[in-house]
Amino acid sequence: MADNELTMKLDGKDVPFTQGETIFDIAQRNDVFIPTLCFDPRLKPFGSCRMCAVEVKGIKNPVASCTTAATAGMEVNTVTEVLEKHRKTLLEMVVSENRELEVSPLRGVASQELSILVEKYGAKTGRFKGAQSGHSRLDDKNPFILRDYDLCISCYRCVRVCAEQEGDYAISVMNRGFHTQITTEFNLELRSSACTFCGQCVQTCPTGALADKKALRHA
């Protein structure tokens, strides 16, 4: 073992890490499960869903493990009663903004992410009832991508994959707060935007709000 090896405490266990690694990276390497919704390993960490928040000794509020780089000697707890309770509350809040939770797996490879987490946490659907967010664009006549934003949870993975992986910058976020909505330039249809129909956004969407129209036809 090199003298200058960095270590931190993860759930009570000493683990080595390299400079710049996030708490989430280290947890993954050590097979410690941390729930996520806005995370996609191909994208820059964004820190919006807050599901991955963990407790760090000496810091008052939990920190997002996906955006926080580990430091030597840091003591992290990934599972505590309080964290698990907040994660469950958060999932119940997320479910409350959508039309439905269960969608066909044919919608896309990541489309079951939210429903799997909800099940795992025993999160109650029907709590926190209120207005729904996001408006589906079923009027978008392109033959490839279904834009069913009634199911959108505003994780912006689609926007980020379009920019970071494809360099297309076809979609973005409009408005603020609960009224945020995935959009194109001037809210036009995808065919009138810079979209190349690569389908990356469909494959990263964790709720099935974006779906592969062709695949669904075979359902």
Binding site: M93, V94, S96, S154, R176, G177, F178
Partner: peptide, 27 residues
């Protein structure tokens, strides 16, 4: 707060909306 929430993080984007609803007589 709901009007001004930026919409980035889930707890605030959803929480400010749901709390507003609960204070307006829904829930």
């Amino acid at each position: 707060f709901a009007h001004e929430s930026c919409g980035k993080c889930f707890p605030c984007r959803l929480g400010t909306q749901r709390l507003t609803e609960r204070l307006s007589g829904e829930g």
